[in-house]
Structures are given as C-alpha cells and as structure tokens.
Amino acid sequence: MNEELFISGREVPHIDPYLNIWHWPIGLYLFLGGLAAGILFFSSLYTILGREKELPTAVKWATFVVPVALVLGLLALFVDLKHQLYFWRLYTTIRLESPMSWGAWTLMAITPLSFIWAAGYLREAFPSWDWKFEILKKFENWVQNNRLPLAWIMVVLAVILGIYTGILLSAFNARPLWNTSLLGPLFLVSGLSTGAATIMWMSKNELEQSLFRRLDLLLIVIELFFIVHLFMGFLAGSEVKIEAAKLFLGGQFTVSFWVFVVLIGLVLPAILEILEMRGKKIPVSIPALCILFGGLMFRLIMIEAGQITRYLY
C-alpha cells in the first residue's frame, strides 16, 4: 500500500486544512433562489396555460412569497461577501463565462419582476388596498393587461435562476463533488419541488392541492433518480470523485445526507403524498415542511461537503 502524507508549510485561515470560504448564507441563498424560481415557474406556466381561475394559489397568492424570499436570499448573499461595499461592481460588467455574473443579472431582472407580478394581485387579495398615486394605478393596469408577455419572460428567467443555483457550483472544476453537470438539473428539480410544496401548502382548493401533490411526487421521483445517478457517476469516476462520494457513503455527511435530505426530505413526503392520494387524511403542512426542510438541508450539506473535496497531488 502506498501512503501519502502531506505536511503543508502554511496555514491560511479559511483555507487550511479545509477550504471554508462559503458558509450557511450561501446555502440559504441557493435554497431561497430555488424556491422563488419554483413558484415563479409554476405561476407563469399556468398563466400561459390560462388556468388562473382554477389555480389561484399557484398563479396569484404564492407569488407573494417570492419577493420576500428573493430579498432575504440576496441579503444572505450580501452577508457572505467579504468586500461588501464593492458589490455594485457586479453590475458594471457582463461576464458570460462566469455563472455568478449570470446569476447577478438574472436576479437583477427577476427580483423587480416578482415585485411587479405580486403587486398586480395585491388589490385582489386586499380589496381595501389603495395605491394612492395615479401613476401606480396606471402601472397596475398595465401589469394586469400584460400578464401574458410578462409570464413568458418570467418562465425563462425562472428556469435560468433555478439551473443557475446548481451551475454556480458545478462550474468549479477544483471541487470534485460539485463538478458534475447533473447538479444544474438536480438543483432545478429540487427548486421546483420546494416551490410546488409551498403552493400545495398555501392552497385551499382541493383541485389545486391534488394537482401539486401529484407534481410534487413526480419531482421527488426525478430527484431520487438524479441522486442515484449522481453517486453512480462519482463511483465510476476518477479518484477525487470517489473520495467525494465517500463523504456520503460512510464519511462525515452520511447520516445528515441520507436522513435529512433523502429520508425526511424525499422519501417521507412521497409516502405521505401517496397515502393522501389513497384517501388517508394527512395535514398538508407535514409533507410540505419535510420537502422544504430537505431542500434547505440539501444545499447546506452540498456547500459544506463540496469545499472539503479537492484535487490530490
């Protein structure tokens, strides 16, 4: 057996022995971004399909969550920046090769759009609401008359936002756990699933709840399928990939990943939803909370674990 021992002649804070430059705010931000992308995707999709009458929560009420989620997410992102006063530099350039630049510009477009979208439904939710200024009333009118083109823009931006949360990580060749093209689709599906869970939770309409229950179940199955493929890919990969997979197969993240993400976040809600479909009465908040919890844990664990994996030389 060949043993290799490294004695590093350096000790740089946050880099040695393990890289730890990204913390929980990044995980929280990826979760909230995915959640926002999920809700906006369904909202704009069902607007385009012309089903706002049957699915009022998906199209209207759930979108009130989005501006809050995006603002909190951006705040979390800002907290984890080290040179905060220079953040505006993001918006002095467009760098096509940098996923973070894509993300910054997407958020720049989708955040105001989500405010406008939700604001257009504000008077429907609170009939006593008064915009006070004539210009705001005119703007509201304009939004309400242009729902369809706005929905088309939003559906594209939502998909970019959802995929971007994964590609942000998968673009890093240096961190073998993240460096897999499956991460973009996996984060998108997970984001859609948390969005669907939120809509299902907020909905008071039986038809809508059952539609999103079925959608959620489908997304959970796709997610499980992706997770199996993720590990198959790692185990068939180079040594650094195998090492990355080992963190979850006996290593330090085994329990947290398989219990919090897979069992509580995916398998348990899937079972509960199947039971519900079979006619058992289960409070909708339980599967919804499980999915949201699993989605958050998934991102937190991926952020932590990814920074431990590195090239061996």
Binding site: I15, L19, I21, W22, D80, L81, K82, H83, Q307
Partner: peptide
C-alpha cells in the same frame, strides 16, 4: 482589489488553493 467583491468564487475554483481572502 477595487473591483473585487469578495464573493469567493475564485477561491473555490482554484485547484491549488492559491488564493485567500
């Protein structure tokens, strides 16, 4: 330095861990 926002993306991207905050 005046253009860096301290996002840490480059630190994550370096296979040699050659960068620090």
């Amino acid at each position: 330095p005046e253009m860096c926002i301290g996002c840490g993306a480059c630190i994550e991207s370096c296979p040699y861990d050659a960068r620090y905050s």
